[in-house]
Design a protein around this nucleic acid. Structure first.
Lengths: 212, 212
DNA sequence: GTCTATACATAGATAGAC
DNA sequence: GTCTATCTATGTATAGAC
């Protein structure tokens, strides 16, 4: 493994483990087992290294899920996969890493760009699936797949931060969301008559709200 | 205004404006217009000051909303109030502040405690309202109000972080959530027959999932 | 309670030998 | 590409005068 890659991997790890507020070029180098000065040989600055690490690690994990997401075409399948995806990515520290990057990004343009890249990468995958699922759903034509994908991604990040602060509370939150998923699934499985009625009602309300 | 209060206010501001990674005792003191050494006279450490600032500012904003939340008893009212609450708190920087605290809390026990306090304070208010709304809802008895309140709070925080990184994307996410709110409202307004049917179906699925 | 001054640690970043 | 050494800035925290 080349030094540059060691640094990228170490930076990704350090983000999840130490958080943006505690991270430093020195701590990353130590974690990578390389000399501190090499950070500035291989990258312009610490922020630059962090940004590169985010892109690198998001590319990896998204690619990992691309195939599995491609197989999903129903809401039940999506919810099930989302459940395991959330657990796996959380354990890998990828969600925590994203949360830290986004927190740091509020002031560091380089990190903001990397965060945007990461969310776009995840959201693009999720969006494709949601769009497919929406085709047969009462919500088809009402709910914007791109927006929904982004909402899901952002919510994951909020939940991850919450988990670091109050694991029990976060679990209760996740359980509640799971119930809502089942409700959505049920509504989704209504017959064509109920579906049409629901869709008409919602459309009426949304239009009214849009005018206000 | 006493120096201690100036520091608390400045710390709260600084959290939203600078973020945990950039904040320092010096920057807070400068913002408060007081001498840097006073941070350590009035507080044990910077982390201690930040934690106190979070409690102080969350107490203020929650009290502000307590009365208005107490008036809410239907889902439509809740969604409407949630909309304005989100906008107002965001503009005040309170959500950004929370997001930063939670990011920093992953490594700083003092901040974690303060973050827990803040979320509990918000969630307690929201929970009471949700419980009231759930009474007449198809979801009554199925959805845990405490968990739902925490999920909403966490999602707000994730969305706030996202907004700092990609305002347009965050808007599309919020719009999608708004549509889902309308859907929930519609489902909520179904007749008693449909309600009973939906509840039975969901309960069956939840039980099955719980056994798995 | 507030100020100046300062000790001390750690950070980002660079120069120059190897 | 990698190392040692080092400059410089900034941060936390304290001592002691006012």
């Amino acid at each position: 493994m080349k030094t540059r890659d060691k640094l990228l991997a170490a930076a990704a790890d350090a983000l999840a483990a130490e958080g943006v507020s505690a991270i430093s070029g020195r701590s990353i180098a130590a974690r990578a087992g390389v000399n501190q000065a090499l950070v500035f040989y291989h990258f312009e600055s610490v922020a630059d290294l962090l940004a590169a690490a985010v892109r690198w690690s998001v590319d990896e994990s998204v690619a990992d899920y691309r195939r599995r997401l491609a197989d999903v075409s129903t809401l039940s399948e999506l919810l099930a996969l989302g459940d395991t995806l959330q657990a796996v990515e959380r354990d890998r520290g990828n969600v925590a890493q994203m949360a830290q990057v986004m927190a740091g990004a509020q002031q560091e343009p380089r990190l903001a760009e990397a965060a945007r890249y990461a969310i776009d990468a995840w959201a693009a995958e999720v969006e494709a699936v949601i769009a497919r699922v929406l085709e047969t759903s009462p919500l088809g034509g009402l709910l914007d797949a791109a927006g929904a994908a982004r909402a899901v991604t952002a919510a994951f990040i909020g939940l991850q931060l919450y988990e670091g602060v109050d694991p029990a509370g976060a679990r209760s939150a996740t359980d509640a969301l799971r119930v809502l998923g089942v409700v959505a699934e049920t509504v989704d499985g209504l017959g064509p008559v109920a579906t049409r009625a629901l869709r008409a009602r919602v459309r009426r309300k949304v239009t009214r709200a849009g005018r206000a």
